Amino acid sequence: MRSSNPVMNSLSSAKGGAQRGAFEVGGPQGYQDPYAGYGQAPAQATGERPMTVDDVVSKTGMTLGVIVLFAVVNFGISLVSPGLAVLLTIAGAIGGLVTVLIATFGKKYGSAAVTLIYAAFEGLFVGGISLLFSGMLFGDANGGVLIGQAVLGTLGVFLGMLFVYKTGAVKVTPKFNRILTGAIVGVLVLAVGNLLLALITGANPLRDGGMLAIIFSLVCIGLAAMSFLSDFDAADKMIRAGAPSKMAWGVALGLAVTLVWLYTEILRLLSYFRSN
C-alpha cells in the first residue's frame, strides 16, 4: 500500500488504522481479508458507505475544475496587473505546499476543505507559472500554443499511464514504490541544491535551458508519470478495502499533486525548446 506520493501514503495509513479497528472488534476470530469482497468493515465502522470509483472520478474532477478556475482568474489579473499576478503565483506556490503538508502530517484525511483550498492555491500557481514559462506575461502572443501543448501532453501521459496500470504492463510492487520514492527524493535534493546554488552564485545548471536542464526535466517527467501508477494502485486498493467515501477527497488531492508537477515540468521543457 506504500506510495511515492506522501498524500497517498497518509491515506493508506488512515485506511489501515480503520481496518485494524474494525477487525479487532471481533477479536482474532473476527479477522477477515481486507481485500475480500471489497472489505466493507472499515466503512461500516465509521458509519459511512465505502468509496467507489465514481467518488474518485467526481472528486478529482471537482478538484481539477477549481484549479482551472483559479488559473483563469490569475490569467485575467495578469492582463490588468502583472505585478499582482506574480505575487499571487508566489502565494499559490507557498500556500499549496503548506496545504499539502497540513494534509500529510496533520492527518486531514478525506477533507473536502483541505483539497479544495489546495486546488485554489495551485490554480493561482499554475496560472502564473503558465504565463511565465510561455512568455505571455511578457507579451508573447504565441504563448497560448505552448500552454495548449503542455495541457495535451499532461492529459496524454495521464491516460497513457492509466492504460498501462489497467493492463498490468507494469506491476506496482513494494520494491517499485521504494525505488520510485528514492528517485523522487534524489530529484528533490538536486532541485533544492540547484536553487541554493542559483541564489548564492547565480548559476542555474538544472533550470537554465541547457542540455543538463533538458535531461533533468525529462527525468522529472518520467518520475511524475511513474507516480501515477503508484497513485492508481493505492486508490484501487483503498476502494477494494472499503475505505470510507470521504477518502476520495484525499485521492483527488494526491492525483492533483502529481498532475500539477507533471504539467509544470512539461511546460518548462517546452519552453526550453522554444527558447533554443
Rank of each mutant, 00 (worst) to 15 (best):
G128L: 04
L137M: 14
V151F: 10
I184C: 02
G153N: 02
V187R: 06
I179W: 13
K108F: 09
I184H: 03
R178Y: 08
I179E: 11
Y118F: 15
A150T: 00
E122N: 14
L124P: 12
G168K: 02
G144C: 00
I129L: 10
S130M: 05
A112Y: 04
L131C: 05
V157D: 01
L152V: 14
K175M: 15
K166F: 10
A169F: 14
T181E: 13
G123R: 01
T104W: 15
G127Q: 07
G153M: 03
I129D: 01
E122S: 13
V170P: 07
F125W: 11
F176C: 03
G186D: 03
I129K: 02
A150K: 00
T154K: 00
V187Q: 10
V172K: 04
L137R: 03
A183K: 09
L162G: 13
K108L: 06
M136P: 10
L188R: 04
K108S: 05
V185A: 15
E122G: 05
T115M: 12
P174T: 07
G139A: 06
S130D: 07
N142G: 14
L162R: 13
V145N: 04
T154P: 04
D140M: 03
T167K: 13
G160C: 03
T154D: 04
N177I: 06
V157L: 04
G182H: 07
V145Q: 05
K171Q: 11
A112F: 08
V189L: 15
N142S: 15
L188I: 14
T104V: 15
A120E: 05
K171F: 01
G143A: 00
E122W: 13
T181S: 15
L152C: 02
V189G: 02
V172N: 02
